[in-house]
Amino acid sequence: MLALAEAIGTRVLRKIRAMGGMTIFLWASLSSAVAPPVPLRHVVKQVHFIGVKSLFVIVLTASFTGMVLGLQGYYTLRKFAAEGLLGSAVALSLIRELGPVLSALMVTGRAGSALTAEIGIMRIGEQIDALETMGIDPIRHLVSPRMLGALVSVPLLASIFDVIGILGGYLVGVKLLGLNQGVYFGQMEASVMLKDVSDGLLKSIAFGLIISWVCTFKGYHTARGAEGVSQSTTSAVVLSSVLVLIGDYLLTSVLL
């Protein structure tokens, strides 16, 4: 009985310690990210890696998401003779939910995994220890630029996702299924409020933070050689995808 209690206690303590470690890590990297001088060149490089190189996959997923929304929405709304609302349906679901969430998931898969692996290999190659020995703060040098890069890139990618998705919906709804173009965009303009756009933006900033936080943390605390890198990469992708979806629910329920 006591042994069971001890086992549970050990687990709980370990989890709490891990969470505390993550929070301290986040605090350290954010505070050194805003401390001048901001390493602008490194941030630009990270925006290039996280943002620019994700552009193709974002455009691809966005156009197909918008197209399928147009298709599904059209056939569902037609049952109520409300095809006119297609524009609102596509735009609102993209701006409020799908844009931020799907772009965050794509960035996790494409860039987040690479971040973890890169920092993880530096860790097991003892490059991070070398930096520390030389008196260079590895968090400031390695983690903060990646975090800033993600914080800049993810909201921009989400906005691009929204616009491309709306165009994809336009392609299917208007060009393919013959909805009136004025109705599509008119309804969209009538129903999308500034709050929808700003909520979506807020969400994608939060997701950018989650992704970069989890992925750099997992990489930074890699252990046990090549196997450790593969493990931390996997768990970084899984954890940040799950956290993005959970965070999405929480943010939606708070913001609505």
């Binding site: 290039h48 943002g51 906005s159 616009v163 409020m193």
Partner: peptide
């Protein structure tokens, strides 16, 4: 240049969403 173009494209998209659709 690539980053600059990316940032401009992203901000343009955001501006379109908030000014045209969000009526900012």
């Amino acid at each position: 240049t690539a980053v600059g173009l990316f940032v401009i494209a992203g901000i343009l998209c955001l501006a379109w969403l908030s000014v045209k659709l969000g009526k900012l």
